[in-house]
């Protein structure tokens, strides 16, 4: 019968569609203004002026609150300043916008790993590092 003839290819199709994954997120490109602000923030950080660095990054956030790079830089700044809880929070914010399997995500997990190491959470640091490595492998 007509139904039976189509049944097998239909089942295969059903299986295939179940395996479909969402497309990988586009690599994040920052506008030149954000890139400038991030650069200036980095300069300020090198000079030890954390307050100015934060102020510049907050201006970048006002342009685009979903830019994972900006959140990552804030996390990194907080790490330098020794504000470890804030650093992890900002890294998680960055993860939310970086997609799960991007280079930015891997960087965030590495950062989180470092933060946890400094907090004395050795197992947590290892777990984060493994996550970063897994993403790294999947990118290749």
């Amino acid at each position: 019968m007509s139904i039976a003839r189509y049944l097998i290819p239909l089942c295969m199709l059903a299986l295939l569609s179940a395996c479909a994954t969402t497309p990988a997120p586009e690599p994040v490109e920052s506008s030149p203004e954000i890139a400038t602000l991030v650069q200036q923030a980095d300069d300020a950080r090198q000079q030890g002026d954390y307050v100015r660095a934060q102020s510049l990054l907050e201006r970048a956030l006002r342009i685009d609150a979903r830019n994972p790079r900006t959140w990552y830089e804030l996390a990194s700044l907080k790490l330098d300043a020794g504000a470890l809880d804030s650093a992890e929070t900002f890294a998680r914010k960055s993860l939310r916008y970086s997609g799960e399997s991007s280079r930015e995500a891997a960087q965030n997990w590495l950062l989180i790993s470092e933060i946890r190491r400094r907090l004395g959470d050795a197992s947590g640091a290892k777990a984060a590092q493994q996550k970063a490595q897994a993403i790294g492998r999947s990118l290749k």
Binding site: S55, E58, L61, F90
Partner: peptide, 9 residues
């Protein structure tokens, strides 16, 4: 003084 962004999960 700067009133900085302070985020807590």
């Amino acid at each position: 003084q700067q009133y900085e962004l302070d985020v807590r999960q």
